Simulated assay, not measured.
Amino acid sequence: MTRRTLFTLIAVLCLVVAGTVTGRMAWFYLSIPSSNTALTHFDTLIVLGNPCNSDGTPGPEQRERVLESVRQYQQGIAPRIIMSGGAAHNQWIEADSMKKLAVSQGVPADAILEDTKAQNTIDNIVNSSAIMVTQGWHSAEVVSSPSHLPRAALILQHYTTIAWRTDASRWPPEYHFAVILAIYASEIKDCWQIHTNGFAARRRPAYAPALSTQTR
């Protein structure tokens, strides 16, 4: 067997293995449940944060998530909204920007609660769940970008006992296909890491409730 033939065989084998792993990752990602309840109306909507622009205005995904929550609110899916997001990526508090946009779209200010501390998706869900406990609420529809919802669902399964379902916002019209594809690839990788390694202790907020027995 020549070196060229051996190299070709190794390359083909690597592609087959990579394809198999990639396929398993994608299959797991697509199999993550989008809800744990048959409810169609909820105590609250939860909108997961996304960065503001450098001038404090809503970034593209943040804008689309908020606009989707406004549509859901106006359809009567829930009577209130929790906006979750701190100054995680720049000096601007995401929840403030999100609330301002929702109010400008006709949602009453007193129908919106804010979590201004969250630094990541686990924080978004843990903090919002804590707000729900203080209010005596037990169900939520969680709004985020389409690619983000499977990871959010894994976190909801792991860190909460509420009834929930997820709802996808629209992609920003300014996003090209390649950008969306890259975002999906990153989320598939993140979900697979959670599946294989569980939730790393370093990512667990100090104020998070005791973990459930589910580790994947």
Rank of each mutant, 00 (worst) to 15 (best):
residue 153 A to N: 03
residue 187 E to F: 00
residue 9 L to E: 03
residue 205 P to W: 01
residue 83 M to E: 10
residue 123 D to T: 06
residue 159 Y to M: 15
residue 126 V to K: 05
residue 15 L to C: 15
residue 107 V to G: 03
residue 213 T to A: 14
residue 216 R to V: 08
residue 157 Q to K: 12
residue 171 W to N: 14
residue 168 A to Y: 04
residue 103 V to L: 04
residue 59 G to C: 10
residue 162 I to V: 14
residue 14 C to P: 02
residue 4 R to S: 10
residue 16 V to P: 05
residue 52 C to F: 03
residue 143 V to D: 02
residue 128 S to D: 10
residue 139 S to M: 08
residue 142 V to C: 04
residue 101 L to M: 07
residue 184 Y to E: 07
residue 39 L to D: 15
residue 130 A to M: 11
residue 110 D to P: 03
residue 117 K to C: 06
residue 215 T to L: 11
residue 164 W to P: 06
residue 83 M to I: 07
residue 163 A to S: 15
residue 201 A to G: 00
residue 131 I to F: 07
residue 161 T to W: 10
residue 69 S to C: 01
residue 163 A to D: 15
residue 30 L to N: 14
residue 71 R to L: 04
residue 203 R to N: 15
residue 26 A to Q: 15
residue 60 P to V: 06
residue 41 H to Y: 09
residue 162 I to L: 15
residue 216 R to S: 14
residue 168 A to T: 06
residue 157 Q to R: 13
residue 44 T to A: 01
residue 31 S to H: 11
residue 158 H to A: 15
residue 190 D to M: 11
residue 77 I to P: 01
residue 94 E to M: 06
residue 10 I to A: 13
residue 179 V to M: 13
residue 207 Y to L: 10
residue 112 I to R: 00
residue 156 L to Y: 04
residue 35 S to Q: 15
residue 168 A to M: 07
residue 47 V to Y: 01
residue 184 Y to P: 07
residue 130 A to S: 08
residue 3 R to Q: 10
residue 84 S to D: 08
residue 111 A to E: 02
residue 19 G to F: 03
residue 28 F to T: 03
residue 15 L to T: 08
residue 89 H to S: 13
residue 40 T to F: 00
residue 59 G to Y: 02
residue 23 G to T: 06
residue 182 A to Q: 13
residue 195 H to C: 08
residue 192 W to I: 04
residue 107 V to D: 03
residue 130 A to F: 06
residue 207 Y to I: 12
residue 13 L to C: 12
residue 195 H to A: 11
residue 199 F to M: 07
residue 94 E to C: 10
residue 3 R to F: 11
residue 143 V to G: 02
residue 83 M to L: 12
residue 164 W to L: 06
residue 209 P to E: 03
residue 50 N to E: 12
residue 76 G to D: 07
residue 144 S to R: 09
residue 83 M to S: 07
residue 49 G to T: 08
residue 34 S to Q: 14
residue 2 T to F: 08
residue 132 M to G: 00
residue 178 A to Q: 13
residue 198 G to K: 11
residue 111 A to T: 09
residue 163 A to H: 14
residue 67 L to I: 09
residue 93 I to P: 00
residue 105 Q to G: 00
residue 57 T to C: 06
residue 66 V to Q: 08
residue 154 L to K: 02
residue 35 S to Y: 04
residue 35 S to N: 11
residue 186 S to V: 05
